[in-house]
Design a protein around this nucleic acid. Sequence first.
DNA 1: ACCTGAACACCGTTCAAGT
DNA 2: ACCTGAACACCGTTCAAGT
Lengths: 225, 225
Amino acid sequence: MSRPEPSRGRTGRPPLTSRPQILAAARRIIDRDGWEKLTVRRLAAELGIGTTTLYHHVRDREDLLIQLLNEHADRTLALDLPREPRERIVAAATAIHDSLAAWPWAAEVLTTDGFLGRLGKSSLRMVEAVLAGAVDHGCTPEQAVHVFRSIWYFTVGEILVRARSTGTDGERPAFFAGVDMSGLPRLAALGERWPELAARDTYPRALRSFVDGLLAGTAPRPSNS
Amino acid sequence: MSRPEPSRGRTGRPPLTSRPQILAAARRIIDRDGWEKLTVRRLAAELGIGTTTLYHHVRDREDLLIQLLNEHADRTLALDLPREPRERIVAAATAIHDSLAAWPWAAEVLTTDGFLGRLGKSSLRMVEAVLAGAVDHGCTPEQAVHVFRSIWYFTVGEILVRARSTGTDGERPAFFAGVDMSGLPRLAALGERWPELAARDTYPRALRSFVDGLLAGTAPRPSNS
DNA sequence: ACCTGAACACCGTTCAAGT
DNA sequence: ACCTGAACACCGTTCAAGT
């Protein structure tokens, strides 16, 4: 896993490609060409190495993406969190959300199996904060996991849906064109205002409602003594 | 869009491939080989036609998937909903959830831009039900859209994350293996119980909490007169 | 009007071999 | 120990042509 010092006497050819180099090249591609263009083949080309060489440094494409995400998390999740339980939960969830919203390509990796077990320390700190906030509020560990998972699903859903929504609203033709609106009065009344309303950033407000709803079931801890 | 009667005199060769045939073949592939195998090329092969012929009947792969989803919705969302606003919202969201949970491949299409505008009547009925429930509870149209979107994000997130989670728990090695747990006491205390807790189906409970939280902000309508 | 093969421009990953 | 080209087994989509 860790690379040896170049000065230490060792057998074999010294590596020409390092993990930080690979991640830097990947970021370069994303910034320059868009994250859709980050493929194993292009990344190798960017590094000036053979495609297959990359497979000595990353297990597969998914592994590359998770390493990239963890590095991103290290840079964006190093913040202090409030002490009060509810505010702690809200702040941690918001940090996760904002971090992911800035990297919509993260969507590809968010839903992989066993994702949590492959997360780095920075991300796990945020998971811990939500769990601790819930427990401090009076939740059992089981309830705390439920609180975390609920918030996680909502956050992932928000990111994934909005990541694919074009910001190019304005010149788009009738959103509900060709849809038969009979029997759908509320939807019909909204009509073409829908795209505008759907584009609003309502994550913070919805998050607070959700946290309130989740914590309402469990009695808050009695103040000490 | 609609196909002509074969008996009516018309110019040109009669079509050998119809929309229902295509959708039936697609379902056959999904049931037999798994939804990952549903590709344009395989579908054409299943139908016994050239790959390019398919492009006369569907605009592209995404269009095929949305047609398939709408057909699925027609078969699964034809249910009655309770009249009481809160129960109406919960029932509609649960119907959407259960319908999607049964077809995890729907994940591929859920997040496409302008998705709502391409939905069929059965799905829009559920959207309408959530909006109507919120308005009947006392929400403004703007708030009702907020309620729908919040529930939608949560539902999509739950489906997408759980769709990729293997049900093959039991023989999997240590979930948090190799993770440094120092400074993460709540997570450490949970330890290897995490996969078991994360596998629980908590959607209904979390949904109720969310709906409660979302409706709490808006005063319930005064009973009539 | 409907259908087609060939081609374009790609993918991720593995193998056996080279230095 | 590290790197490699070639190959495998695919993708979605477009074009110009055939019946």
